[in-house]
Structure formats: structure tokens, C-alpha cells
Amino acid sequence: MTANVVFLPGLLCDGAVWTEQQAALPDYSCHIVSYGELDSIEAMARHVLDTCPERFVLVGHSMGGRIALDVVRQAPQRVSHLVLLDSGYQARAEGEAGEQEKAGRMALLELARSRGMRAVGERWVQGMVHPARLQQPDFIESILVMLERKTPTIFAAQIRALLNRPDATPVLQQLSCPTLLICGRDDSWSPLARHQDMAALVANAELAVIENSGHMSTMEQPQAVNQALLQWLQKHS
């Protein structure tokens, strides 16, 4: 029987994030989830469970990693292996730090409504990729085109989901399936130190660091990500 892999994109992302990973897994049945206008991590996770095969390898990037953790919380028996890339696990901070995050996200939403999704992408991408990638127009264009496929309405829904995200610390502590964390060495949005903290919470978790990569590791360094993913899957098959 062919094993299933479910890919969960992050904020404003879609299957373009997973193009190279799908190509590297010809022996798996791959499924990429779209969240539509769902506006909570919990609802997005329920959507995954409602639309995906009964049992699967679950791979989540960024916001998709948070959704993946809630999938495990809701139905741990459905997930055979878990991979979290450039992601996080904590709820929004209380106090000033949390308000600063909210203000930053709402400013981007206002930009989306006033100037369109491409304008959001042009600002957003600056801190999302390795600085060297900013000098590669074709690569940057591929990200901007992906973001343009979303709408301000979808952006608003996903912002609400992230601002109200649950603390997944208990989920990490209770994980029993094989778990791999992958992080770009230069990810300034979801830094390596956070992934080291996550790995410390999970029994027998493995951590792979992708060199010369920022937050968009699957697109920035697809071969390195594929190698880490394939070796780990073979090890735990």
C-alpha cells in the first residue's frame, strides 16, 4: 500500500512551497491542503482530518507546522510521522510583545487592502529569505506570484488564526510518533534556537539544520531539505 504524505503550507503559501519535495517522493501519495477562509488553527486542523487519508506522514511549514501540531492533538492515531519546518509552538505573547506582533500583522493586512497582495509580498519577503536570495529576481518573483494567488480576505483569516494560536507545548511533550524538525540556519522569523527548544520537549526528536537558508527552506535549499527528509523517512520506515 502506498504511504500518504500530507503537506501543510504556511501563511499565504500553497503547493509551490512543496514542489521539490513532492518530486522527491515518487513512492508516496502526496496531498497538499488549502485552508480556504478558515480563521483558526483548530478549524484548519479539523479540515485536514476531514479531507485527508486515514493515516499519513504529516509535514508542516511555518503556520502549517502549528496546524500539524493541532492535528496531532486532535487525532494522534492518524499521524504516523511528523515533520515541522521553520515553525513554532508558543501562543502569542502577553503584554507589549503580543501587541507589537498584532500591530505588525495588522499593518501588513492594511497594506494588502490598500495596495494588494504583491505589495505585502515585497515587504514580507525581505526578512523571510537568506539575504543572498534577495539578489535573485526569479526566485523572489516565484514567492511574490505565490502570495498574489491569495486575497486580503484569506490573509485576514490567517492573521486571526495566528494571533489566537494555541500553545502547543503539551502536544510536543506528549508526541510519540517519529518527529523531525527542520530549520534554516538563518531563519530570523522562526529561529534555530526555537527549534532546539522544541526538540528538547519531544522524546527522540531529530533536528536538521539547513545551511544558507532563511525561513523558506523548502524553496531556498530544496535539495538539502529533501535529503534530510528522505534519510529520516528511510530510517523510520
Rank of each mutant, 00 (worst) to 15 (best):
A24G: 13
A168L: 02
H47M: 07
L82A: 12
F139Y: 08
I32W: 02
C13T: 08
L8S: 05
R66T: 09
V171D: 06
A16S: 15
T169Q: 15
L201W: 09
G104D: 11
A24N: 09
G65I: 13
E148C: 08
R118W: 00
G10T: 12
K235N: 02
V5F: 01
A107P: 06
L108F: 09
L181P: 15
H215Y: 00
A168Q: 05
V202I: 15
C30R: 11
R55Q: 15
G15M: 08
R149T: 15
M128G: 04
Q223P: 01
L181V: 13
C52I: 10
A157D: 03
C30T: 15
V202K: 11
T179Y: 03
I143N: 00
D50G: 06
E37T: 14
R133H: 01
R165Q: 09
L233S: 07
P178E: 10
N226T: 03
G10I: 12
P131A: 01
R194F: 07
H81C: 15
A103S: 14
A75R: 13
L49F: 11
A203K: 14
A208R: 01
I143D: 01
V129S: 00
I159N: 01
L109D: 03
L134C: 02
M1A: 12
E110P: 03
S176A: 15
S87R: 08
S87G: 11
A193Y: 12
Q100W: 03
A97C: 06
G184V: 06
C13V: 02
Y28S: 12
G127R: 14
P137D: 01
H215E: 00
D27S: 12
T19K: 04
A68K: 05
P137H: 06
H215N: 01
A112Y: 09
H215K: 04
W124T: 06
A97F: 05
L25F: 03
P137R: 10
H81M: 14
E148K: 02
K235A: 09
A45S: 11
G104N: 07
L192R: 10
H195D: 08
S114D: 03
R66V: 07
Q22H: 07
A119Y: 04
T179M: 10
P191F: 13
L162Y: 00
A200L: 14
S62F: 05
